[in-house]
C-alpha cells in the first residue's frame, strides 16, 4: 500500500460568508494532485488549510499522520508558493531565495551554490540583486518557486504557480517541476484554473465548486462523464475550448 502524505477528513471552515464544505481528500506520497476551480471557489483557502494557516475549523488535516496544526509551523517542511507570491519586499531576490538556508545557518558557499542552481533552473540569474518591487509578474513567480524549492520540501503547495508565465516558460516550468519532483520525491498539491496544465502535471485532479471538492479523478479521466451537474457545467467550458484547438 502506498503511504498517504496528506489526509483531509470532513474538513469545514467558515470565513466570513464563504464556507469550505466537508472536504475529504487523501494525497499519497510523491503524488501530484491538482485542484481545478473557478475564482472564488475556495482553492486558496483549501491550500492554506492544508498548510495549517487557520486555527478554527471542524474536521482534520494531517500530514504524515500528524495533525498539521499540532506541528510547529517551522517544522512542517511545507513549501508554499502563494498566488501573489508573498516575496519579502525588503530583501533582494537572492536573499529571498536563500532565506530558508540562512535560517538553517547554512554557510555562504552552500547558499551561493544552491541559489545559482535554482537561478539556473528557473532562469532568474540576471535579477538576483533586484528587489521584488522591481520585478515583472513572471520573475516574481519564479523567485517564489525558487525560494520554496531550494529547501526540497516534502510537501509542496502551489497556488496558481504558473499563471503569469508565458507559454514557453510554462512548458519549461512543467518539465522543471516534474524533474524536481522526480529528484526530490516531494508530494505536490497545486491549484490551477488551466485544465491543460492540470492534465500535464497531475496524477489526479479534484474539482472545486463553491467550496466543495467534487469529482476526484485520475487526470486522464478528467473529461469522463460526471453525475454532478455543477462539474459538468464547469468542465463544458473547457471542453468547448478543447474542441477548437
Amino acid at each position: 500500500m502506498v503511504n498517504s502524505m496528506v489526509e483531509i477528513k470532513k474538513y469545514s471552515i467558515q470565513l466570513g460568508k464563504f464556507k469550505l464544505k466537508n472536504i475529504n481528500l487523501n494525497i499519497c506520497e510523491k503524488e501530484i494532485f491538482a485542484v481545478l476551480g473557478r475564482t472564488g471557489s475556495g482553492k486558496t483557502v483549501l491550500l492554506e488549510s492544508v498548510a495549517g494557516f487557520y486555527r478554527s475549523f471542524s474536521g482534520e488535516v494531517t500530514i504524515q499522520g500528524q495533525q498539521v496544526i499540532d506541528i510547529p509551523l517551522e517544522k512542517r517542511e511545507i513549501g508554499f508558493v502563494y498566488q501573489d507570491f508573498g516575496l519579502f519586499p525588503h530583501m533582494t531576490v537572492y536573499d529571498n531565495i536563500t532565506y530558508g538556508l540562512k535560517i538553517r545557518r547554512k554557510d555562504k558557499e552552500y547558499k551561493k551554490k544552491m541559489a545559482d542552481r535554482m537561478a539556473e533552473i528557473l532562469s532568474i540569474g540576471h535579477i538576483l540583486n533586484q528587489y521584488p518591487g522591481t520585478l515583472s509578474g513572471g520573475e516574481r513567480q519564479r523567485t517564489a518557486l525558487a525560494r520554496a524549492l531550494i529547501l526540497e520540501p516534502k510537501l509542496l503547495l502551489m497556488d496558481e504557480p504558473f499563471s503569469s508565465l508565458d507559454p514557453a516558460t510554462k512548458e519549461t516550468m512543467y518539465q522543471q517541476i516534474k524533474k524536481i519532483h522526480e529528484i526530490f520525491g516531494c508530494t505536490i498539491l497545486f491549484v490551477t484554473h488551466d485544465f491543460n496544465e492540470a492534465q500535464i502535471m497531475a496524477d489526479r485532479i479534484g474539482i472545486m465548486v463553491n467550496g466543495e471538492l467534487k469529482g476526484i479523478r485520475k487526470s486522464a479521466d478528467l473529461f469522463e462523464s460526471y453525475q454532478d451537474e455543477e462539474i459538468t457545467e464547469f468542465l463544458s467550458g473547457f471542453q468547448e475550448r478543447r474542441m477548437c484547438i
Binding site: 498548510a51 494557516f53 509551523l73 517551522e74 512542517r76 511545507i78 513549501g79 508554499f80 502563494y82 508573498g86 519579502f88 532565506y99 530558508g100 535560517i103 538553517r104 525560494r147 520554496a148 529547501l151
Partner: peptide, 8 residues
C-alpha cells in the same frame, strides 16, 4: 507565515 513555513 511564509517565513515560518521556510523554517523560521
Amino acid at each position: 507565515f511564509i517565513s515560518g513555513s521556510l523554517g523560521a
